[in-house]
Structures are given as structure tokens and as C-alpha cells.
């Protein structure tokens, strides 16, 4: 598998009144052509900032990529001009944001928005771009696509808006699609339709997908490989089956035990099994983290954990974990 996107030792920071927030603190991963990579972790662990860094959409007034490298098809994105970045975004790499209303223009019809993107990146005439827009709406199974082209975002339901976002993101055949919580705002039956659609389109077009979510059910059902983040760092990475079958990092194990499961029954007396909690709080990102970021909440933590960050160890089969106490 050749990597189309390589992220190496990414550090992204924000200046705030409380000090420098180390939102992403040394993250590395690869995305192979045509694969679906999941990124999971608790709220605030740096998932969205990682995505925004790749697209170079970190607000320059307060934030910056402080260190690291992002290579897309061999080109270093951190060194690219804003002009060159603009021609990549929405074309070679595109993104679906969590809240579609914030990224759709309320005063333009959906047809115009999709077609504009196509004209900008593919340099085709307007009529061809309109036709492409209709095709895309068909592809994401919006019924009556021709009429919908002339509707405004507020005339569509939440599920349809999310599908329009997907249509727009895929309209220029991107190599990589970054989807940040693409279904969190949606209902269960609509969520299932959207996930099916993304996977199906991926199989058709060969686009690699980076799926960011904190929903482990979504990860289990749609991804091939998973990166687990904690406090701005990657703590574990594995093929999806290995991660769920044999989670190695104490944080990943904690997450897995905390999920209420549809497939675990109360016993005959109706006693509900207790969910496992992860005691304690995530570290404050404005203070430098010495040692392992999870040490304050980890029952296995030793003095070594508190003093020195754990290196990655290789469990084989593409499964790596950063923990001093994992014995292989």
C-alpha cells in the first residue's frame, strides 16, 4: 500500500489568554490510497485540529503548525503557497464538516454551489458543471435532483444537507476525503444511509477517507484502520479488527469498556451490568505534559510513565501502541 497522505510529527498550537494550547502534540500517521482511516478520541483531543491542519485551515491569527510535515502525493503541504493550497482544497483533498449549515452558503442554491466548485477546479463550462452537479445529487440519492439543484440549503432536511455536502466534496474526484463527524448531527436511520453511501462511493471512486468521530460503533462498521488520540497525541494505531479485539493501550481499553452495548443483556434478574468508568480528567493542554499524557488516570502508571513519554512498540500486523506497560 502506498501512502497518499503522510503526516509526520505534527504539532499545532494556539495562543490563548491561558497560554499556548498544544492541541496536536506530535502526531504521525499515513493514509493509503483508497483506504478508510478512522481517528477517534475524547472531545478536545485534537481530531478536528489535525484535519484542519492538513487542509491548512488553522486560523492564522491565533494558531499555527509549529512543527512537523504533511505530505500529499509527495508534496510538502506545510510549505505550499496559499494559492496552491486553494487549488488542492475541495479538489484533490476535500472535507465534510460536522455542521453542514455552516459550510453551505445560505444565499446560493445547492446547484450553484456545487457547480461553482466544479468550474473553479476542473475548468469546465458552466453547463457541464451544472450537469455534473445533477449527477452528484443523483449519486448521493437525492430524489428529484433536477428540482433540488434550484433549492436553497434551508429548504432541505438535515440529512439532505449532509448529502449535499458529500456531493460537493466528491464533485471533483478527490484523492482524500476528510469527514469530521459527518453523521453526529443526524438521526440513526439517516446516519446509516449516509455511512453506506460514503463507503459505496469510496468503492466506486477509490477515494481515501479519513473519518473523524468519537462514535466507536461508526468506526467499527466503516473503517479499516484506526488511530486513537489522547490529549493531542496518538496513543495507538491498529487495523480495526485488532483494535476492537485486542485493544492494548489502557486508554483504548477504558473506552471500550465504557460503551453501553446493544448486544450485552441484563441478566435474568434484570440487573444491568455496570459500565466501566475512566476516573479522572483529561490533562490541561496549556501545561506541558511530562511523560505519558494518560498517566494521571492510568491504574498501571509508574514513576517511569510520569517522567518519560512512552515510545511506540510494535505488536505486529500494523498494530502499534505507546505504553510502557504493554508486554508483548
Amino acid at each position: 500500500m502506498s501512502a497518499i497522505l503522510e503526516v509526520r510529527d505534527l504539532h499545532t498550537q494556539f495562543n490563548t489568554l491561558d497560554g499556548v494550547v498544544r492541541a496536536v502534540d506530535g502526531v504521525s500517521f499515513d493514509v493509503a490510497r483508497g483506504e478508510t482511516l478512522g481517528i477517534v478520541g475524547e472531545s478536545g483531543c485534537g481530531k478536528s485540529v489535525t484535519a484542519l491542519s492538513i487542509l491548512r485551515l488553522i486560523p492564522p491569527e491565533t494558531g499555527r503548525i509549529a512543527q512537523g510535515s504533511i505530505r500529499f502525493e509527495g508534496n510538502e503541504l506545510t510549505a505550499l503557497s496559499e494559492e496552491a493550497m486553494k487549488s488542492l482544497r475541495g479538489h484533490r483533498i476535500s472535507m465534510i464538516f460536522q455542521e453542514p449549515m455552516t459550510s453551505l452558503n445560505p444565499v446560493l442554491t445547492v446547484g450553484t454551489q456545487i457547480a461553482e466548485n466544479v468550474v473553479r477546479h476542473m475548468g469546465v463550462p458552466w453547463s457541464a458543471a451544472r450537469e455534473r452537479a445533477r449527477e452528484m445529487l443523483d449519486l448521493v440519492r437525492i430524489a428529484d435532483a433536477k428540482r433540488r439543484l434550484d433549492e436553497y440549503p434551508h429548504q432541505l432536511s438535515g440529512g439532505m444537507r449532509q448529502r449535499v455536502m458529500i456531493a460537493m466534496a466528491l464533485s471533483c474526484d478527490p484523492q482524500v476525503l476528510i469527514a469530521d463527524e459527518p453523521t453526529t448531527a443526524l438521526d440513526v436511520t439517516i446516519q446509516a444511509q449516509i455511512l453506506d453511501l460514503m463507503i459505496e462511493l469510496k468503492e466506486k471512486t477509490g477515494t481515501a477517507i479519513v473519518l473523524i468521530t468519537h462514535d466507536l460503533g461508526v468506526v467499527a462498521e466503516t473503517t479499516e484502520r484506526v488511530v486513537v488520540m489522547y490529549a493531542g497525541r496518538k496513543v495507538e494505531e491498529a487495523p480495526v479488527e485488532a483494535l476492537f479485539e485486542n485493544p492494548l493501550h489502557p486508554y483504548t481499553r477504558g473506552l471500550m469498556r465504557a460503551i453501553p452495548r446493544l448486544d450485552v443483556e441484563a441478566d435474568a434478574a434484570g440487573t444491568r451490568p455496570r459500565l466501566q468508568e475512566i476516573p479522572g480528567l483529561v490533562p490541561i493542554l496549556t501545561r506541558p505534559i511530562v511523560g505519558c499524557a494518560f498517566a494521571a488516570r492510568c491504574e498501571l502508571a509508574t514513576d517511569r510513565c510520569r517522567a518519560t513519554p512512552p515510545p511506540f512498540v510494535d505488536a505486529g500486523g500494523g498494530h502499534i501502541v505507546a505504553c510502557w506497560e504493554v508486554k508483548l
Binding site: V188, L216, I259
Partner: peptide
């Protein structure tokens, strides 16, 4: 439609 946290049941 509910997802399950279990890739084997995918």
C-alpha cells in the same frame, strides 16, 4: 440502523 462497536458484526 444502529451501529455496533464490533467490526466482526459489520
Amino acid at each position: 440502523a444502529a451501529t455496533a462497536p464490533d467490526p466482526k458484526r459489520r
